[in-house]
Simulated scan of single mutants.
Amino acid sequence: MLDQIFNTSTMDYLSRGMSAANLRHEVISNNIANVNTPKFKKSDVVFESLLAKEMGLDKKLGLEMVRTHDRHLPIPMRERAEATVVMDESTTMRTDKNNVDIDKEMANMAKNQIYYNAMTKEMGSFIQKLKTTITSK
């Protein structure tokens, strides 16, 4: 019974989003730590575009079926979006072939922190709604 309550698409999307933000924090931290390492190439995490594609929100796909409730018949599943680390080898910032821009990385870190905080707030709100629904008479 509890399995059905907590294994909803909302919980799944939020938990994967939080995991992606956690991974992105690690990747950005690694980029910052290697800002002065010769020949170091920065990395980034791709997740949101993959999740949009999984959910059928990708504009290139045209009209898609949409499930409006967790108990509706499932839409044929596309591949499950997972956060992926991608290395950027196409650019060079300095003569030592390092491509880390510390200002961009610090801005990305702040943006990712805001994203993570929003996800945790949504997760808390969702759990509070579940709690209210369970305990109300």
Score class of each variant (00 low, 15 high):
1 M>A: 09
4 Q>K: 02
5 I>Y: 08
6 F>Q: 04
8 T>E: 13
10 T>W: 05
10 T>M: 02
12 D>C: 06
15 S>F: 01
16 R>Y: 05
17 G>Y: 00
19 S>M: 02
20 A>N: 03
23 L>N: 06
25 H>W: 14
25 H>R: 15
25 H>T: 13
26 E>N: 12
31 N>F: 00
32 I>G: 08
35 V>T: 05
36 N>L: 05
38 P>W: 06
39 K>R: 12
41 K>Y: 01
43 S>Q: 01
45 V>W: 02
47 F>I: 00
48 E>K: 15
49 S>H: 01
51 L>P: 01
52 A>C: 06
55 M>K: 06
55 M>I: 03
56 G>W: 00
57 L>V: 14
57 L>E: 15
57 L>Q: 15
59 K>L: 10
59 K>Y: 03
62 G>R: 14
62 G>L: 13
63 L>D: 15
63 L>N: 12
68 T>I: 05
68 T>D: 14
68 T>Q: 05
69 H>I: 00
71 R>Y: 09
71 R>I: 04
71 R>E: 15
72 H>D: 11
73 L>A: 02
73 L>S: 00
74 P>C: 09
75 I>V: 11
76 P>R: 13
77 M>R: 01
78 R>E: 10
79 E>V: 07
81 A>H: 01
81 A>L: 05
81 A>E: 01
82 E>A: 09
82 E>G: 04
83 A>C: 10
83 A>D: 11
84 T>C: 05
84 T>L: 06
86 V>D: 08
87 M>G: 11
88 D>E: 12
89 E>H: 14
90 S>N: 04
91 T>K: 06
92 T>C: 11
93 M>F: 04
94 R>N: 03
95 T>V: 14
96 D>I: 11
96 D>V: 06
98 N>L: 04
100 V>M: 08
100 V>L: 09
101 D>S: 07
101 D>A: 00
103 D>I: 03
103 D>H: 11
103 D>S: 05
104 K>H: 04
104 K>F: 08
106 M>V: 09
108 N>F: 01
108 N>A: 05
108 N>P: 06
112 N>H: 09
113 Q>E: 04
114 I>P: 07
115 Y>T: 15
116 Y>L: 02
119 M>T: 03
119 M>K: 07
122 E>H: 12
123 M>T: 10
124 G>K: 10
124 G>V: 14
125 S>A: 15
126 F>G: 09
127 I>G: 11
128 Q>N: 04
129 K>L: 12
130 L>H: 12
130 L>K: 11
130 L>S: 09
131 K>V: 09
132 T>A: 13
132 T>W: 13
134 I>N: 11
135 T>Q: 08
135 T>E: 09
136 S>K: 02
136 S>G: 01
137 K>C: 07
